[in-house]
Design a protein around this nucleic acid. Structure first.
Lengths: 223, 223
DNA sequence: CTAACATTCTAACGATGATTGGATTATTGG
DNA sequence: CCAATAATCCAATCATCGTTAGAATGTTAG
């Protein structure tokens, strides 16, 4: 039962290609990014990714077969989550390589932040430091469940849908740094536009928790 | 000419998926690994990957469209190379995630090193240190052109095909550490088996230059 | 210019993937 | 047990990919 060198190699590369195959569909990538924000049931994932539940289920099956996600049943719902932080790190690496290599992507991304001044000029460490001292307010504008699953240190939860009603909670004399799921997510951008219109000093941090952690910085999870 | 948030997202994820698509075929992955060893003409790549020149050309076109490789014409030949070290790093990350997640891959890989004692127990830093002091001989058993394109510090070139004739150049009182293109390459394994049969103290380092450099260690290129 | 060579392009086929609708399997609440 | 809900499985459609063969392109040597 011996294999030639060629056969062995074919098996090895085919196995690695399984991961590649899982990562080659836009919708699957979007599901992975959503799952970077914590576990979610199928229907939630389908809504967030704007696809049917059936299709979401099919894509999740693919991802599960590549051992990138796993499922947990709780009552009627099946909750999906990443199989580990390595998957989130890999997603960050893939997106970052794509940004690096594909001009089209960089162009599309640039449109999202046409007002350069709305992007934070501060480094991650600076933000962490300022937030610790209370010199900036770090705002997590994702849904509350995602905040609960893990958020930046010293960050305060204020889902995008509630920002308008809760303006009173924010200071007008300090910068407000808003973040969401990552560079491809539009929630922080909208929050910043809204806040600036209301006279706040709001800027956006492009990182989500996955990017933040992939760069070696700490994440707080309410456990 | 405004786009809805959904449309923007679809564009962004589709762009990243281009990289995934390029990485989802076993043969393309093999081509990338070969290109990690330095630039090569199409025919050489086809031979190494065991495919027809036409097919190699088609795959290379895909990779080029994803901006992962680039082509340079020199006379009748077209030389392909990676567009940067980031691509090699990404390949290492992908393979490493696959090894981590896929039991089948780990099983297949384990068969390659069934004699555990043939794998080096030393860390990269130890090897570098011992090689520097001349306490081990580090042997690069890849073809000479690949050695020339870049090799481990203090490594000596001895292509697998020549090892048998050049045994006299190797010491019998010190460990010989052989490496090749990486964990999926069989050349170092064969070299180690041959050397041990001849009475040498040979062990294998699974790293190739891409793995070595991805871990932050220096590479020497004859410039 | 012509011949020879290396590579790419075009066309074609079978295989595989994305997507959808209908039936099916778990689970909860009565 | 039955009805309702959540999710998956199955079958079918259409598009896309991998692969091969044949034609075409670009380059060098004479």
């Amino acid at each position: 039962m011996d294999m030639s060198g060629r056969q062995v190699k074919d098996v090895l590369y085919a196995q690695v290609a399984r991961i590649g195959k899982a990562m080659c569909s836009p919708k699957r990538l979007e599901l992975i990014e959503i799952l970077c924000q914590g576990e979610k049931p199928v229907e939630r994932l389908a809504i967030e990714a704007n696809i049917s539940v059936k299709l979401a289920s099919a894509h999740l099956k693919e991802l599960r077969q590549a051992h990138l996600v796993e499922a947990r049943r709780e009552g009627k719902n099946v909750y999906y989550s990443l199989t580990g932080e390595a998957v989130a790190d890999f997603w960050v690496a893939l997106r970052s390589l794509a940004e690096d290599r594909l001009l089209e992507l960089r162009a599309a991304l640039a449109k999202l932040s046409e007002h350069v001044h709305e992007l934070t000029p501060m480094s991650r460490d600076e933000i962490l430091d300022l937030a610790k001292r209370g010199d900036v307010v770090v705002l997590d504008v994702r849904p509350e469940t995602e905040y609960a699953a893990g958020h930046l240190p010293y960050a305060q939860s204020m889902p995008l849908t509630e920002v308008q009603k809760r303006l009173a909670e924010l200071p007008r004399d300090k910068p407000v740094v808003a973040y969401c799921r990552g560079p491809f997510c539009l929630m922080a951008k909208e929050a910043v536009e809204l806040l600036n219109k209301e006279g706040f000093q709001a800027i956006r941090l492009e990182d989500g928790v996955a990017e933040w952690r992939a760069h070696g910085l700490p994440i707080v999870s309410a456990s």
